[in-house]
Computed example of a mutant assay.
Amino acid sequence: MLTNIEPKPPLLVLVGPTAVGKTQLSLTLAEQYKCEIISGDSMQVYRGMDIGTAKVSMEERARVPHHMIDIHDPSDAFSVAEFQERVRDLIPQINNRGHLPFIVGGTGLYVESVCYNYQFSEANSDEQLRQELDTYAIEHGDQALHDMLREVDPASADRLHPNDRRRIIRAIEVFRVTGTKLSEQLAGQKKESPYNLCIVGLTMDRALLYKRIEERVDEMMQQGLLDEVKRLLAEGYDPYSVAMQGLGYKEMVGHLQGEYSLEGAIELLKRDTRRFAKRQLSWFRHMKDIHWVDVTEITNFSAHLANINDIITGKIVQ
């Protein structure tokens, strides 16, 4: 007996570590395939945090519609569950406009949660435990909290930066309440996509990537990252909030609070960003369905674009 099976809606995804060159390629691809870009970055959701998040410019947003940018104040918490819910609503809206939804970003869990429709639940929550852990971090430092997580869930500790207090608390909470590791719960999610999925991953020589990261940090400082952080603090945002613990912001706050010199803050930011890129690559290496493109030869843009076009036309029929 024949049945009518609805075709899966198409979804294009571009991932890779910070500074690998996602933005330039994404804009070209978006114009070529009539895409609307969905930012897959957990920090670009915050208004007024533009330089440190390497947010696309207004001119670039004028070229291609962008979503999931500037949707929260820095005082607001933002979670993977909210990201997933919002993007799941966006994808059919974009398809209905005759455009191709295109997720671009480097926050692995956020991107993967949409690609494979992860199931998130707040049923196993303990508000009192969260408050106790938060107090522990304030009294003993974020590194001590991160060390606590490493004792019970090393894989989650490897994935999360010591500054990411909210997510570290959540990972410890999951273990304390359920008795199972958050990393094991994530690994146990069904990797079946509700979309006709095409994921392209960008990679490059590690030494070149690190050089590009250091150049990007220098460029952010020239663009006024320190002044951006001063403005956010002057507007009353908590220097210990989740948003202000992001890369670039925590280091500048530390300098402004006298913890280290500006030169020391810049070197710390470069080091932390290199480590972040390493964690990004590790996460993406464990994702399935990624078609990798090596973009080490950065002057060979047309060749990289042709390679990606071959991948897209082989996966998504327009």
Score class of each variant (00 low, 15 high):
Asp218Gln: 09
Glu219Tyr: 14
Met220Thr: 01
Met220Glu: 03
Met220Trp: 02
Met221Leu: 12
Gln222Glu: 15
Gln222Tyr: 06
Gln223Thr: 11
Gly224Leu: 06
Gly224Ser: 02
Gly224Cys: 03
Leu225Asp: 07
Leu226Ile: 13
Leu226Asn: 05
Asp227His: 07
Asp227Cys: 08
Glu228Phe: 01
Glu228Ser: 05
Glu228Asp: 10
Val229Gly: 01
Lys230Thr: 05
Arg231Ile: 10
Leu233Ile: 15
Leu233Ser: 04
Ala234Asp: 13
Ala234His: 06
Glu235Phe: 12
Glu235Gly: 05
Gly236Ile: 06
Tyr237Phe: 15
Tyr237Asn: 12
Asp238Gln: 10
Pro239Val: 09
Pro239Ile: 11
Ser241Phe: 04
Val242His: 12
Val242Glu: 15
Val242Gly: 05
Ala243Ile: 00
Ala243Val: 02
Met244Cys: 06
Met244Trp: 01
Gln245Arg: 15
Gln245Trp: 00
Gln245Ser: 15
Gly246Tyr: 14
Gly246Met: 07
Gly246Ala: 14
Gly248Tyr: 00
Gly248Leu: 05
Tyr249Lys: 04
Tyr249Gly: 04
Tyr249Phe: 14
Lys250Asn: 03
Met252Cys: 09
Met252Leu: 14
Met252Phe: 06
Val253His: 04
Val253Ile: 15
Val253Cys: 14
Val253Gln: 03
Val253Thr: 15
Val253Gly: 06
Val253Met: 04
His255Ala: 12
Leu256Trp: 01
Leu256Phe: 07
Leu256Gln: 03
Gly258Ile: 08
Gly258Lys: 10
Gly258Thr: 08
Gly258Ser: 12
Glu259Lys: 13
Glu259Val: 11
Glu259Phe: 11
Glu259Met: 12
Ser261Glu: 08
Leu262Val: 08
Glu263His: 08
Glu263Trp: 03
Gly264Ile: 10
Gly264Asn: 08
Ala265Trp: 00
Ala265Ser: 09
Ile266Leu: 07
Glu267Lys: 15
Leu268Asn: 02
Leu269Thr: 00
Leu269Asp: 00
Lys270Leu: 10
Lys270Met: 07
Arg271Tyr: 08
Arg271Leu: 12
Arg271Thr: 09
Asp272Gly: 02
Thr273Leu: 15
Thr273Ser: 14
Thr273Glu: 02
Arg274Pro: 06
Arg274Cys: 14
Arg274Gly: 06
Arg275Cys: 02
Arg275Asp: 09
Phe276Tyr: 09
Phe276Ala: 01
Lys278Tyr: 11
Lys278Ile: 10
Arg279Met: 11
Arg279Lys: 09
Arg279Ile: 10
Gln280Thr: 11
Gln280Tyr: 04
Gln280Pro: 05
Leu281Met: 11
Leu281Ser: 12
Leu281Cys: 08
Ser282Ile: 07
Phe284Ile: 01
Phe284Arg: 00
Arg285Phe: 08
Arg285His: 11
His286Trp: 05
His286Lys: 15
His286Leu: 13
His286Ser: 13
